[in-house]
Design a protein around this nucleic acid. Structure first.
Lengths: 128, 128
DNA sequence: ATATTGTGTATAACCAATATGCACAATCCT
DNA sequence: AGGATTGTGCATATTGGTTATACACAATAT
């Protein structure tokens, strides 16, 4: 079985905590199919070492990923990308997108943007 | 001169810091015209007391609001909503909207959403 | 058996946000 | 002029989330 490359990185400039950055990168790669089901994640100690961070941050990211069904972990064996069907992947991807969008939507309504205005704003700024 | 009502509130359940909540509420009310130029803000001590928070949080919000041109402060007199022209209000409103949207846009592209998909997602979830 | 991998716990350091209190400066009001 | 009001500035402290380090334990692999 051949598996995809796992690419993970940490931005110290990000406002998001490390565990959150890892969660999103992995979840995104899974629901977009960049990471196929069953792909083994690097051992947390090795990853902590190569990223120059603590095991704690990775552990927390992995915990939440498992809680949300994105990965499965087996003691002594390792952690693996969950095997989501195409349908499931699609709905989870939509879920994540909505999760990103919802908080902004609330603010944008507060700013009095109509649906039409909002769509226009996005059309003009999607790229970049 | 008659001025608008200023409504400010703090949500302890919010993930955003107090000073940020205040900043946004005030900036939003100003660019949407709910707060007309020259309207006096409550004295920071009185406001701190009535909201049950510290002066520090208010001070910081006010500082950033002044830095960004939303209010003007005069020692001994008080703080007042800045007097923005209609045009200026419009462009600042657009600025704030983009500021809310931009971080989400980056994530949404990471999720592989096309412009069309994104617009559809918004159309379906603008209300609620 | 020994190594590898995840789990759990304890301890500590760091930092942003927040709170409290007091002194100072500028302005307002009488 | 004098007291009240308002913003400013500083010092100190607390709290909570995030992260780091280290060690012992459990399950699996080779």
């Amino acid at each position: 079985m051949i598996h995809m490359e796992i690419s993970l990185s940490i931005l110290n400039t990000s406002d998001k905590p490390i565990y959150r950055q890892l969660y999103e990168q992995l979840a995104f790669q899974i629901v977009t199919g960049k990471l196929s089901g069953g792909t083994p994640l690097p051992p947390i100690r090795a990853l902590a070492n190569s990223l120059g961070i603590s095991v704690i941050s990775i552990k927390r990211a992995w915990e939440e990923l498992e809680r949300d069904g994105f990965i499965v972990t087996m003691v002594g064996r390792g952690c693996f990308a969950a095997d989501l069907g195409d349908e499931e992947r699609g709905s989870r991807r939509r879920e994540l997108a909505l999760g990103e969008l919802r908080p902004s939507l609330a603010s944008l309504r507060q700013l009095g943007l109509t649906k039409a205005e909002l769509i226009e704003l996005i059309s003009e700024n999607y790229d970049e």
